Computed example of a mutant assay.
Amino acid sequence: MLRSLRRSAALAGGCAAALGLGLVLTAGSPASAAERTDPNGRYTAEEIHHFLEGFYGDHGPTAWERKHLVSKQLKEKAAENPGFDVLLCAQNEPLDIEVGEVTTAQSARVGWATITTTWGGEPGTASFTAYVDLDASKPMKLLDVDCGVAG
């Protein structure tokens, strides 16, 4: 749903963009998260999937998402790699992005999913793993990205 709203916002302009931004802000706020999380105060796999779909969209995160929805450590990792988009494990924008099934490791307090990007040339697709903190007392953020072959 959030992915569809992002597309609509891009097409419709100002009002829809403000609405989409409001939904992203609400989805990442601790108050709204507390209403949906599991009884132990952790984000669920469904919530993480929804977050990752909204974060990555069809072509990658926006400048706002990169600034507000990424951990400090991942921002530092990105700054250390100019010319390479650490969040997409690529050098340019993909044609499409799909978020795979989310796995949660409650003991590690982290959830992750394989992100598959589609490109115009060969090999056509690439995959990487995106990690999100399960702690629902904090706004959801992208913790890390592993550009190694996702499996």
Rank of each mutant, 00 (worst) to 15 (best):
L23F: 14
E35T: 11
L19W: 05
L87M: 13
T116F: 04
T26C: 09
G20K: 01
T114L: 00
F84S: 05
W112D: 03
N40C: 08
C89L: 06
E65A: 12
F84I: 05
L52W: 06
T104I: 14
E65S: 08
G57W: 07
Y56G: 07
K77T: 14
L21G: 10
L19S: 04
P82E: 12
G121D: 12
V70E: 04
A18V: 06
T37A: 15
I115G: 01
Q91M: 08
H68E: 12
T104L: 04
D96P: 01
L23V: 15
G124R: 06
E76P: 00
S107Y: 02
L74W: 02
E65V: 01
A63R: 11
A45V: 10
G60C: 10
L25C: 10
P61C: 08
L87E: 02
L19D: 07
L74P: 03
L21A: 13
T114I: 05
L74N: 04
R109K: 08
E76I: 06
N81G: 01
W119R: 08
L19C: 09
A108I: 01
I48M: 11
G111Q: 01
I97P: 00
Y56K: 07
A79M: 09
L21C: 03
A63C: 01
E65D: 08
T26E: 13
Y56F: 15
K72Q: 11
Q73D: 14
E46A: 15
I97S: 02
V86L: 09
Y43V: 03
L88I: 10
H68A: 10
A33S: 15
A18C: 06
A18E: 14
V70K: 01
H68P: 00
P82Y: 11
A105M: 05
A31T: 10
V110S: 01
